[in-house]
């Protein structure tokens, strides 16, 4: 029976361990916070800032890791996104980056 255990390939163990630590991050934050009887105001302010803070870091490299076409697209997307529904902005942004790249930027 130990041979059945041993024949599971290393890749599978690594993937399952990766899944376990990922699940720990997704459940862990809640476990920590829910143990507090009440949430201090500063902690509450911090948690409310989380979405903008994190999502910004996912966008920011777009300004430096590519070129002019991508910078123009992001700037245009900010202007469009302040006026149009998100999906419309998304599709226009997509079209714009394809067009600018085709134009050689």
């Amino acid at each position: 029976m130990s041979s059945g255990f041993m024949t599971i390939p290393a890749n599978v163990w690594i993937i399952l361990a990766g899944a376990l630590v990922t699940y720990a991050t997704r459940f862990g934050g809640h476990l920590v916070i829910s143990r507090m009887k009440r949430i201090p105001p500063r902690v509450n302010v911090a948690l409310n800032a989380v979405p903008a803070a994190v999502i910004t870091t996912l966008v920011a490299p777009g300004f430096v890791q590519h070129g002019a076409a991508e910078i123009i697209t992001l700037l245009a997307a900010i202007v469009l996104g302040l006026r149009l529904p998100m999906m419309v902005m998304f599709l226009l942004g997509w079209a714009l980056v394809v067009a600018l790249r085709a134009a050689g930027l």
Binding site: T25, F27, G28, G29, V32, I33, L47, V50, V54
Partner: peptide, 10 residues
Amino acid sequence: HILYSASIGR
């Protein structure tokens, strides 16, 4: 995701 979890868990 720890931050997401802490924030949304509330």
